[in-house]
């Protein structure tokens, strides 16, 4: 987590339009979303959002209270970074040549990433981990030439048995 960032775990009803309600609230109150991830939960009537936001203490407390006022929001919690497991997901397509192939493969192994597509000119790698790990991998392969990349918002759950 970067400085000033905080993680929100939000349980919402699994309706159309809920994402708009949540993102609309952020934009009209002037809060920035760094990343937002949404997906169904074990209960198909509910979805869970993980939202990473940068802001001060004022924004942090206002966001929780304002989100709680939305009818479709069933639960909002701030997940302290040291009590949560956080994972991001990256798909990155890197240019390869005969000279660079080994170097990239080595990096894939060291980062415990996975090659998921491979041609003579390109390699698509899947990396999972914390933000800093993904950043480091991107930084390393930059010099070989990134053809395209796609990064999903962070997911976070509490450590241990605690849940939202």
């Amino acid at each position: 987590m970067k400085k000033g960032q905080f993680i929100l775990g939000v349980i919402v009803t699994n309706h159309f339009g809920v994402l708009t309600r949540v993102s609309g609230l952020f934009s009209r109150r002037g809060y920035n979303i760094d990343s937002l991830n949404v997906g169904e939960t074990e209960d198909p009537t509910l979805s869970r959002m993980t939202i990473i936001v940068t802001g001060d203490d004022y924004i942090e407390s206002q966001i929780v209270k304002q989100l709680s006022k939305l009818q479709d929001v069933k639960k909002v919690e701030l997940l302290p970074a040291d009590e949560a497991v956080i994972r991001e997901h990256l798909l990155i397509k890197v240019r390869v040549t005969n000279e660079t192939r080994t170097q990239i493969t080595e990096a894939v192994n060291i980062f415990r990433a996975k090659v998921i597509d491979f041609t003579a000119e390109a390699m698509t790698v899947e990396v999972t981990g914390e933000t800093t790990k993904l950043d480091a991998f991107i930084e390393y392969v930059k010099n070989f030439g990134i053809i395209e990349m796609c990064r999903a918002g962070a997911l976070a759950v509490y450590r241990g048995t605690k849940s939202l």
Binding site: Y58, S61, Q62, K65, Q66, S68, K69
Partner: peptide, 8 residues
């Protein structure tokens, strides 16, 4: 009555 008004 509205918690969001406190300290807003």
């Amino acid at each position: 009555i509205d918690p969001a008004e406190i300290n807003k």
